[in-house]
């Protein structure tokens, strides 16, 4: 299913949201932006949990004004929102029971999803006895059980630890591609957005600044705000990527901080510039050292 938002507007006090956006069929689109930029509100408007002040929402070119229960949407929150009084099986079966499936159909469908989410043998478990990652997989299985036309994910991985986040990320991507379900993903984590998405929409302050493939967003940000959010060094209207700085020749500056990231190293200079480079064997810098650096490629923003 494809989705279109045209001129969607929403006001909360001083905050104004103005958004137009297209999501293609089977696409994985991420809304990326800092907290308070309005990305969750966009998701809630699409889900029907919030009403826009003006503007239109289309599902498959048809204007969507059905109540939330009728939109056939799968929704996963950061806090999982599992039903604590039901076990794993009943959580996943919930939407099927609403839809009055037969006992047999429910059992088959739930087992299919337990398979998909790698939760076999978990069906009788109580929610309270599951780990965070398991809970998130149940939430995903529950959302997918009703064969939704659209999957909405609101920072689903944010409350998990780093290692689990990465493995669940891969799993999520695989499931999404397998089912070919149109997916809208909300996050503030640029790495997550870059690794998961077919396209990314970068949002600030209630507006979308750029919608593009991850490579283009990273390598060709449209303006300095997007560039800065993607980790570029930005000064005035000029910007350059962290890895586009070489050390050895050029301007002199003292090192303010060094962060080792395994194979790579991140050096922060006292003038604020951040350099990211692969570590050479014989390299040996320390905070307070003075080094020379030069920028390979500069981008001029409007």
């Amino acid at each position: 299913m494809k989705i279109k938002l045209t001129g969607i507007k929403k006001r909360f006090g001083d905050f104004r949201l103005v958004v137009s956006l297209k999501v293609y069929d089977s696409e994985f689109l991420t809304l990326l932006g800092p907290s308070g930029c309005g990305k969750t509100t966009v998701l809630r408007i699409i889900a029907g949990l919030e009403n826009q002040d003006s503007g239109y929402l289309y599902f498959n070119d048809k204007m969507m004004d059905l109540p939330i229960e009728k939109r056939n949407i799968g929704l996963v929150f950061q806090d999982y929102a599992l039903f604590p009084h039901l076990n794993v099986f009943e959580n996943i079966a919930f939407g099927l029971r609403v839809r009055k499936y037969t006992k047999k159909e429910i059992k088959e469908r739930v087992e299919e999803l337990l398979d998909l989410a790698r939760l076999n043998t978990y069906e009788k478990r109580r929610i309270q006895d599951l780990s965070g990652g398991e809970q998130q997989r149940v939430a995903l299985a529950r959302a997918l059980a009703i064969s939704p036309d659209l999957l909405l994910l609101d920072e689903p991985l944010s409350s998990l630890d780093a290692k689990l986040r990465i493995s669940l990320r891969e799993e999520l991507k695989k499931i999404q591609k397998k089912l070919g379900i149109t997916t809208l993903y909300v996050t503030h984590d640029q790495e997550e957005a870059l690794s998961l998405s077919d396209r990314i929409a970068v949002m600030f302050d209630g507006k979308i600044y750029q919608v593009d493939a991850p490579e283009n967003i990273y390598h060709h940000p449209k303006n300095k705000y997007v560039a800065e959010f993607m980790g570029w060094n930005v000064e005035g209207n000029i910007g350059f990527k962290q890895e586009d700085v070489s050390i050895g020749k050029g301007k002199e500056e003292r090192i303010a901080n060094i962060e080792f990231l395994g194979r790579e190293v991140k050096i922060k200079l006292e003038n604020g510039i951040v350099i990211r480079k692969t570590r050479e064997k014989d390299e040996n810098y320390a905070v307070g050292d003075t080094i020379r650096y030069s920028v390979k490629k500069i981008t001029q923003f409007d």
């Binding site: 889900a47 229960e69 056939n72 919930f94 609403v98 939430a139």
Partner: peptide, 29 residues
């Protein structure tokens, strides 16, 4: 009561009475 739980139940299709009987009431019990 978590708002997200009720909202999720609604996206799964639960309406007023069903929602109350199957989600809200058991949680309040």
């Amino acid at each position: 009561l978590s708002v997200h739980i009720e909202e999720t139940a609604r996206t799964l299709g639960a309406k007023r009475f069903f929602l109350f009987r199957k989600v809200t009431f058991p949680l309040l019990l």
